[in-house]
Design a protein around this nucleic acid. Sequence first.
DNA 1: CGGCATACG
DNA 2: CGTA
DNA 3: GCCG
Length: 591
Amino acid sequence: MPFKRPRPNPTQGGPNSESSSSRPLPAKQTKTSTAKGLPDMKIYIVQAKLDAESIATLTGLAERHSGVCRNAEDAEVLITAVSMRRRLERHVPWEIAKTKAVVTPQWLRDSIEHGGPLPCDDYVAIGDLHETTVQHCPDCNCKPCGCSDDSPSPTPPTSPRPRTAELSSSPTSLSAASVPEPAERAVYVPENLLPPDPPIPTKLETLDYTSRYACQRPAPLVCVNQSLVRELDTIRHSRWLEGEDRSALSYERAASVIKAYPHKIRSLAQVVKLPFIGTKIGGLIEQYLNTGTILEAETIKGSERFQTLSLFASIYGIGPSTARRLYDLNLRTLEDLEIYYGVERDDVGRQSQIVEVEEKPQHPRWMRGQRAADDGLGDSWIRVALGLREDLAKRIPRAEVEEMGRVVITELNDLKPGCVSTIVGGYRRGKRESNDVDIVFTHPDASKVKGLCKSLVRRLHERGMVTHVMHLSSFHTHDPLRLHHWDNLEKALTVFILPPTSPFYDGTRRRLDLIFASPEVYWTAVIGWTGSIMFQRDIRQWAKDKLGMKFDSSGITRRYDSKEFYPKTEKEVFELFGLQWVDPTWRNADL
DNA sequence: CGGCATACG
DNA sequence: CGTA
DNA sequence: GCCG
């Protein structure tokens, strides 16, 4: 049945999602046009009137054979299925379109087949743009006739274009190819809710890798001392599983500092000066320098207890404490757990029976520790998690994260046009594969956000895309007694599956978190949910230590008088805190 | 020796 | 306690 | 486990 081949998807680091601003890692900008059938052009695909499958296919073709970009004005070639001028103008400013080759999707396919850019004459998408399209066609025959009036061939100076919420006006991927395109009249979105354009550069030289705060230390996805970091992380993980949280925190901090250290470590002297490297951890690093490993980490990795606790705690809803309890009951394998929790092997939770899962309430203090009454019972909900474990353990390639974002945003825009969103989490930090997908949403009109989370979840649920709702909740303002303030943060933790019509569909269920913020706290929510955890922790620590402020995902308040602050952009949060800008791809303070 | 991010269910 |  |  679900034997649609999962797209191999060789080239990644592709187009950044709609309004997210993660970039490819700063290090390399390989220009290898090898293996690409076309020269490296910047192609922008206008999503209107294309279904999800076509978008994915075209994007894939462009990525593999040439290059894509996320802004129309940065592109050389616009590809669109739209044929009417008025329609195109809703997605690309006319003045911009006039400076590009605007062609049909067939041009891309044929050019790839042909092995080079074809003349655009036969592929003009919009009649009124025939002249300019031929002029700007990347096939270099007609270039010499450069009697162009405008055409600054390098990207035009980009006047602040009116930006509208045109995030993926593609139809739902459920409806096949035809396009009704409902709800027109683009909603105007204030500039500050959209990602900065151009993106803000990270001034690495003004940051400080010796800082005691992770939010001042630029940390790449993978560092030059990565294997040492992994050793320390093994010990951290073990401490955490064993309930030694403070010790775990120390290892986490040490690893985080090493992660940001930009040189290969060759001597102990290099690291003992770094913060959070004390006697014990310094000794372990010395050992690592001498032998290439840390004995304790190797021992841990080999131990049955560690392996088992790790396995148990990898199940959603099972933490260190429960994992240890199960281990003490002499359970060791998943099969043991399935028996213990009463799962019938042979695909159970399979098939799309929609399940609503409620968080299990905690036992009262007075009856915990008396392992009795409820040993194999109760947690009907762990059974569900067990059934999901295999799927949720799979990582999600960037391209699929983007597809999920597209699908969800399309549904949302149907529901409430004008929403703005950012895909956050590890994806935004540049990870090539994610464990889950987190999306933060808002709407320029604050009054339209309330209840949206629940509505969207209901809609996705009705359409079979959300199979489980692990959690649905709201946050509120800092007002101890919130009077006229409605909640300004709503959150849903769900399990999601792409519709079978999606080219990425392979039946794997994925964790999807949806976060709705009021526009005033949109960027603080985005910062919070972008992480990494250590980065987030230290930004809060910094706010407290240096500014006397409290920072959480739903806002910033001054501690002594509870005055609230509402930075209008992500950059303004950094400025408010007196911090240098750190791009999301440099916030990888965790392993 | 106290603090280590913070909030919700 | 477990999750973000 | 490390810091002030």
